[in-house]
């Protein structure tokens, strides 16, 4: 199993296409950071236009924490595509190349093969998110500095103390990893049914688009199914930036307003991952390799 995992990782990181995702993330984060560095004041003024009328806001509002939050909001919608490029290719790409049949004539079980490939997809996903975290959080902190973070909500603003933010980002990235792994699992599962990677990539993205639309549509008939759609829970990472307040309306350090809801969302995503992986193993064990 360990040998298989090493081989899968070796293959993934030997392919130039693997690095497209890292280059894309680096380019997008850099563009956002550059834009905010050059013209961030106007962006912040626009964002705080209503608050500025009532409050005197001082300090480094456009700090690294806020920049990272902005980046995550923008990027975590698009990262699934980058994850899918690799995950949906893991089985179908090998079927297309003809190497799947060679691999399966070796004395390794199909369950081992599928688990090694899934673990490799998971490691790739985590590495991409770690890379994104380094660029979005640490580089932003270096460029923009640190201070309290203002989290603007509709109708109110949450002020997070600078010493109460870092752990929230750790949790947010872990949650995002779970969400992205759900996407990877879906792409991986769909790649079992195709002999080229285009089909499962398009199918995975289509499912995400349709589910996202259903998750955001505020039509009563769709409300019943929303809790079961993984896309509904993919933005659960934002929950770590909602804090409880005390009687003086001050944020309680170390608190999360709806921790149960966040954990429930994480649980639903984990169930999706487990279900898709189990289905992948069961399908693959019985699959006739005709490619």
């Amino acid at each position: 199993m360990w040998k298989l995992l090493q081989i899968e990782l070796f293959k993934i990181f030997k392919r130039p296409r693997t690095y497209i995702s890292f280059v894309a993330v680096a380019a997008l984060v850099s563009i956002i950071q550059f834009g905010l560095k050059v013209d961030g004041k106007m962006y912040v003024d626009f964002m705080l236009r209503d608050l500025s009328a009532s409050f005197n806001i001082e300090g480094n509002v456009l700090n690294g924490y806020l920049v990272c939050y902005i980046i995550l909001q923008l990027l975590l919608v698009h990262v699934p595509l980058l994850i899918t490029l690799i995950a949906a290719d893991l089985i179908s790409g090998e079927a297309n190349m003809g190497t799947l049949r060679l691999l399966l004539t070796k004395p390794v079980s199909r369950t081992e093969v599928i688990l090694a490939k899934f673990l490799a997809a998971a490691i790739y996903t985590f590495l991409l998110l770690i890379f994104m975290a380094i660029l979005a959080l640490f580089v932003s902190m270096a460029i923009f500095g640190t201070d309290d973070m203002l989290n603007l909500k509709s109708g109110y603003v949450v002020q997070l103390k600078s010493n109460d933010i870092f752990w929230r980002y750790i949790c947010a990235f872990c949650f995002a990893a779970l969400a992205m792994l759900t996407v990877a699992s879906l792409g991986f599962f769909l790649s079992l049914f195709a002999e080229n990677s285009i089909g499962p990539i398009v199918a995975t993205m289509s499912v995400i688009v349709v589910f996202t639309i259903l998750s955001t549509l505020d039509i009563p008939i769709f409300n019943a199914i929303k809790p079961y759609l993984f896309t509904t829970h993919m933005i659960g990472w934002k929950g770590f930036f909602d804090v409880k307040v005390n009687n003086d309306n001050e944020a309680i350090i170390g608190s999360v307003q709806n921790l149960d809801k966040v954990l429930q969302a994480a649980g639903i995503l984990a169930l999706h991952i487990f279900g898709l992986l189990l289905a992948s193993v069961l399908v693959f064990r019985k699959k006739d390799i005709l490619s």
Partner: peptide
Amino acid sequence: LRQTGAVIEKPDVYKY
């Protein structure tokens, strides 16, 4: 399979 080696149809290997 430990005692078997095979080439099936086209010799497809990792081209990269």
